[in-house]
Design a protein around this nucleic acid. Structure first.
Lengths: 186, 186
DNA sequence: GGTTAATATGTCAAGAGTGACATAGCAGAA
DNA sequence: TTCTGCTATGTCACTCTTGACATATTAACC
């Protein structure tokens, strides 16, 4: 099975969801580390159902269009359980900003510094967003991750990676921008 | 133009290379932040030549098969120069290990801790590799990035991102593993 | 009554990337 | 002489992902 399938099963392990619900999770917050469009999700749900990992039932709604609510099966739960402790399939890193950094000697140092200052701002912004979620988690789920429910700890662990990533990325942008400033129109 | 094209032009800005040379750069060291297989590179070179960004001439070799050596044109150089200070096209983050972390509550804490310990080892290994390159750069290009040639600084800046990324990733793995250890067969 | 927006589910063509297949020159070793 | 391995260039089928197209329900607003 493809990783997208496990991402869907992972969400359905926590609660029953419709395709539309899954789409929104894949935008935020799951989309912070695994994203997918609805054009991927609906066919994937059909595939997962065909293989017996999920089932659905139609829920009629009065104030909205009807929807199909999907639930994970025992077989689906077993599949995620097996996948979750397997080493991840190695993925090729592709970071366009690092590629630009590698080519930055071709540019005017002024324009280059501006690029990295702007990118620093964006990563700081994302960092602050993650930190707000962290505060919310600590307020609602308890200060220490050791005492959180295991599923909540899992969410918190993923968030921690986001925080580390953005913090370190912003710092790197700041460092590059500073070094570029020193080369400005000397 | 696609980012792959700029990656190729970025390398050709530094020196003339054959498709095979480019393939090896895209494995290492450029592959650390932008990778491509030779099945992508050869068609891309044809496309770039068609658009006038590169030209090639055949070099006959005695001890090896002949090769096509590509060089960047003035038009190609102009294209990279414009691209390099443009904000990067936003890319969807997809990190399978973070997705596994998010689902880790489904697993046995022992097996989960083993996964993150192993991943920590791999990221530490990559970190040490980057740090060896850093030492080599400092020995050969000078200690302070401010005084490096601009193109060398660009290479160093990309490397610094790799170092920060791996250091932070390894630390996160260590943190997750430690928290999981605390939940072991209590 | 018409428009806009959110909910809800789907399909399809095109692009990007991978892995396999294919061919060939040359060197060195068995 | 054959085999292995590196150099060297290319194609192709398949998968994954995106963006556009397509349709329908209901609420809220003008």
């Amino acid at each position: 099975m493809r990783t997208l399938g496990y991402a869907v099963l992972s969400l359905l392990s926590r609660e029953d969801l419709s395709g539309y619900d899954l789409k929104r999770w894949m935008e935020r917050p799951l989309g912070y580390f695994w994203s997918a469009r609805h054009s991927q999700i609906y066919p994937e749900l059909a595939r997962l159902e065909e293989e017996g990992f999920v089932t659905h039932h139609v829920v009629e709604q009065r104030e909205r269009p009807d929807k199909k609510v999907y639930g994970i099966t025992a077989s689906g739960r077993e599949a995620v359980r097996e996948w979750v402790t397997e080493p991840p399939s190695s993925q090729a890193t592709r970071d366009e900003l690092v590629l630009k950094a590698y080519s930055i000697w071709l540019a005017d140092p002024d324009a280059a510094a501006a690029l990295f200052e702007e990118q620093e701002r964006l990563h700081e912004e994302q960092l602050r967003h993650y930190e707000e979620i962290e505060v919310w988690m600590q307020d609602n789920w308890g200060e220490s991750p050791e005492r959180m429910d295991f599923d909540r700890f899992a969410s918190y662990a993923a968030l921690r990676r986001g925080i580390g990533y953005e913090r370190d990325y912003a710092e790197w942008c700041r460092w590059v921008a500073a070094k570029l400033e020193e080369r400005r129109s000397v």
